[in-house]
Design a binder for these strands. Structure first.
Length: 424
RNA sequence: GGAGAGAUGGCAGAGUGGUUGAAUGCGGCAGACUCGAAAUCUGUUUUCCGGUUUACCGGAACGGGGGUUCGAAUCCCUCUCUCUCCGCCA
């Protein structure tokens, strides 16, 4: 959620920059500003009345102590007479605040200066490509879902049986490869200074709201109706919300957290080649990194996180490219996002395996995540997060790119974790 | 799941209707003392909103929501959570 003070004081700038995200609803923005004016007007009026009432109540107290009952009664009646207008204004204020809030949550985050205009993924900019060469596979090369069956390491049918589509069962070396990747990613994150956390994978409504899934992407999450809880779509939700409603000393910034969690996404409406095999799942594993940072340093931190994710993919020896998302392709809450895509050798396509974003104060404003600055004032902190990494498409690329007729080679860095060099 | 008790500032812990945004202690910060530190002493120390703008003024908040009252941390209702006992249990 944007800060109303920003919209109020930098209206033109906001309009211009929101246009980059293809958000051009100036009618909404005007309604917001009107609503804000209205709210302030009402509050000023109400505060004056309440101040008067408070004074009267104090005087009544004093008169009662002195035993001057008649005069006290007189003042009581005066105060009572004001009650109706106080109630009226209070209701108006509540309504005005409610309206303002409901309008304000409809406005996406302001994109950072770097973000290019654009409508779809076609307008994104490739900003980097690593030096790992694309694998030259022969004609008999199989896509990962065939490899998974051939080597009996991932069973999609079994998943269908016990749960449904999009819930694969990993078996034998397939299961161990999952565990190896999780441990590898967590160890790397720890070495890079992230504190490992094991959060709940079920969160409440407030948490969903804090990171922006609710109300924006509510339909993406699995909802446990009986307890009104949600399965996490990403560890970002519990991790960032650890600091909901808190004030951090500026000396403690940045806060760096990492967690492995399974992630659950309903993915309603997806179909075709996108959902084949491991390409898009309802449950998948991911290691996430999160930072809470001083506003002056958050873009530096974004670069650092981007470099960190790149280093993981380099170590896994996967060809990848980094995409800077255009305004139209960015998420509602993000100010700048880099996507990482690995080359899937047998599918001949790039697969998104990570998304690293700076949300600036968009999330922290929602969840009241602040820091105390050098002058002892509270300020909204900036939040950032990134996948490091999401497993399924990494596995898909590893299987496909490293295949030969008889076996699949495990990347060197993973061998200490898997305990085997080949899947055969 | 059943019964009972409770939820107050960073922490501990007073406060059962009237200058209580809140005693006291600890912690934090600033200062005095000291070569320095400890100890001691003095002062200070919540957040949000609005107005004015370095000061300052007003309002709101004592788990969340609602009610009673001229006035609520204090009384009532309700929800959530915590603790104790019983039951169940990885």
């Amino acid at each position: 959620m944007l800060q109303i003070s920003y919209l109020r004081e930098h209206t033109q700038e906001a309009i211009q920059r929101l246009a980059i995200k293809n958000f051009t609803d100036t009618i909404l923005l005007n309604r917001i500003l009107e609503s804000d004016n209205q709210r302030r007007k009402i509050q000023t009026e109400l505060d004056a009345l309440l101040a008067h009432q408070n004074t009267l109540a104090k005087q009544v107290g004093e008169l009662m102590r002195k035993g001057e009952k008649a005069e006290a009664e007189d003042l009581k009646n005066k105060s009572l007479a004001m009650k109706e207008s106080v109630n009226l204004l209070t209701d108006q204020l509540t309504a005005a605040e409610y309206e303002l809030h409901n309008l304000l949550v409809l406005v996406p985050n302001i994109p950072s200066q770097k973000v290019q205009p654009g409508k779809t993924a076609d307008d994104n900019t490739e900003v980097f490509r690593n030096s790992v060469r694309l694998p030259e596979l022969d004609r008999k090369a199989k896509p990962h879902w065939e490899l998974a069956e051939k080597f009996d390491i991932i069973d999609f049918e079994l998943g269908n049986k016990i749960t449904g589509a999009g819930f694969p069962v990993y078996k034998g070396k397939g299961a161990k490869l999952q565990r190896a990747l999780i441990n590898f990613f967590l160890d790397k994150a720890t070495a890079a200074g992230y504190r490992e956390v094991q959060p709940p994978v079920v969160v409440n409504e407030d948490s969903g709201y804090g990171t922006g899934q609710i109300p924006d992407k509510e339909g993406q999450m699995y909802h446990i109706g009986i307890d009104n809880l949600y399965l996490v779509p990403t560890a970002e939700v519990p991790l960032t919300n650890l600091y909901r409603n808190s004030i951090i000393k500026f000396q403690e910034l940045p806060v760096k957290l990492t967690a492995y969690t399974p992630c659950f996404r309903r993915e309603a409406g997806s179909y075709g080649k996108d959902v084949r095999g491991l390409n898009r799942l309802h449950q998948f594993d991911k290691v996430e990194i999160v930072q809470i940072q001083h506003p002056d340093k958050s873009y530096q931190t974004l670069d650092e996180m981007k470099d960190y994710v790149a280093s993981l993919l380099d170590e896994l020896n996967l060809p990848f490219r980094i995409i800077m998302l255009c305004g139209g392709d960015m998420s509602f809450a993000s100010a700048l996002t880099y996507d990482f895509e690995v080359w899937s050798g047998a599918q001949h396509r790039w697969l998104e395996v990570s998304s690293v974003s700076n949300f600036e104060s968009f999330q922290s404003n929602r969840m009241k995540l602040r820091y105390r600055d050098e002058k002892n004032k509270t300020q909204l902190a900036h939040t950032l997060n990134g996948s490091a990494l999401a497993l399924p498409r990494i596995v898909a690329a590893l299987l496909e790119n490293n295949q030969s007729e008889k076996a699949i080679a495990v990347p060197n860095v993973l061998i200490p974790y898997t305990g085997f060099q080949m899947i055969s």
